[in-house]
Design a binder for these strands. Structure first.
Lengths: 244, 244
DNA sequence: TCTACGGCCGAACACTGTTCGCGTCAAGTA
DNA sequence: TACTTGACGCGAACAGTGTTCGGCCGTAGA
């Protein structure tokens, strides 16, 4: 039973079980995020992630319950990169916008992880840190806790939804990030032409304002919607003069 | 060649090619919507839809380019059910909310078709009819076309995103629609307990307001966010006193 | 020293969207 | 009336997917 192996039959030439570092959740999550950044979320399959460690998909299931949990872990890992501002109640509107922008930027930078974030109550440590900070800003502005909780929910829904929508556009426009802008210009041009070619009898307003409907890029639109939300919030502060 | 078939070998017992009505896009789309209503969007596979006509998946590809186009057609078909209010500029805020509520209701009623609507510029005839109406309300309120276009975009993003999130919750809570409410109550209860069990050193605000954070159902939250958006909109009307 | 256990992993299952190519039926043309 | 053409119907197959099963092995505990 203990016969030494002949030299031409080593226990798999050099690599197999030689000095394999054991898998960990963190390594798996980071590998998945690497794949998202390089190839998009659709490329993140269990087999693809496992291939990053020269192994099969089933090896991952010892560390991660299923793909959904992997998504949650990826989202939480990303939230680590969102900076938290020190609360300054006088500037609460601007601070909410700053935090929202940070979150949006992080999501957009990490491609379509936003998809994994939709419809998840944030329960990871880093996601909750961001939630707690935003909630604190709302409370500090003088809102009652129930409305602050709803506002928190709505603002995050907006951030995640926009980031998700954005990622779907990028995905549709092709894989080359440097060509995205010209594809975008071409696409909005076609869309404007289409609106302007509609019969005015059926779609009078779309027909008349094709130019306005296709103006502005993702950032401008995000900012515009953020203004809408925060301005609407100002009405909910009981005794404050809404804004300066 | 014209020998009559022996009685034990009829041209497929009774049903096969007897009097098959030809497939049409409309029938396919309606069958897909039937499946969504009964079994959820995840059950809508090409094979499943084809099975509704006792045929194979490949038969559908003569009428529908691919699954994405089928999704778009389903979404547009649903938009047919959204009633369009006759514009009354004096009540523009309430009318925007009515139209938004109608859209939300229709999406929620049709389960997770909202998923198919995210990141789609609406180009179907019925979807554009709804867009044109909402755009008209915004213009009628006195907004300049560019801002009205952005507002249109943001409002629909909000509606679709919330409906989508809602459908994901329903899906997660199990298949029985009558049990959804009690699952919801149980889930929010657990979530509240979880928040209240957090270390106050790390998450002071979440810890302190678990009750407030888990209050309100989907409708209340949708309405709250809608108020935020429309109130924020009121600031953009040049010479109007914001509201009555 | 033996035994248990937890991580590793190939194979398999039941799916998915989509394509290929063969049939067959209906309408148009000579 | 005979023939051709073309569109639709559809079984089979391809390349994927998430997940589970069962066996393997190396290490840690009794």
């Amino acid at each position: 039973m203990d016969i030494p192996l002949p030299p031409w039959r080593q226990p798999s030439p050099t690599r197999a079980r030689a000095a394999r570092p054991p898998l960990t959740r963190d390594q798996i999550v980071r590998a998945a995020l690497r794949i998202v950044a390089a190839e998009g979320l659709d490329a993140v399959s269990m087999r693809r992630v496992a291939a990053e460690f020269d192994t099969g998909a089933s090896s991952l299931y010892a560390h991660v319950a299923n793909k959904d949990e992997l998504y949650q872990l990826m989202f939480d890992e990303i939230c680590r990169d969102i900076p938290i501002p020190a609360p300054d109640p006088a500037r609460w509107q601007e601070q909410i916008k700053e935090l929202a922008r940070s979150g949006y930027e992080v999501m957009v930078r990490h491609g379509d992880v936003a998809k994994a974030a939709m419809a998840q109550i944030p329960t990871g440590p880093h996601a909750m840190r961001v939630s707690d900070a935003m909630f604190g800003l709302l409370l500090g502005a003088g809102m009652d806790p129930t409305k602050a909780g709803w506002a928190l929910d709505r603002i995050f829904l907006y951030i995640v939804a926009d980031a998700y929508e954005n990622s779907l556009y990028l995905q549709r426009f092709g894989d080359s990030p440097e060509r995205v802008h010209e594809y975008f210009v071409e696409f909005t041009g076609q869309l404007r032409d289409y609106y302007e070619s509609l019969p005015a009898s059926h779609y009078p307003h779309l027909r008349a304002h094709g130019e306005a409907l296709t103006s502005g890029d993702g950032r401008q639109r995000f900012e515009f919607g953020l203004d809408m939300l925060v301005d609407g919030l100002a009405r909910l502060i009981p005794a404050a003069p809404a804004s300066e």
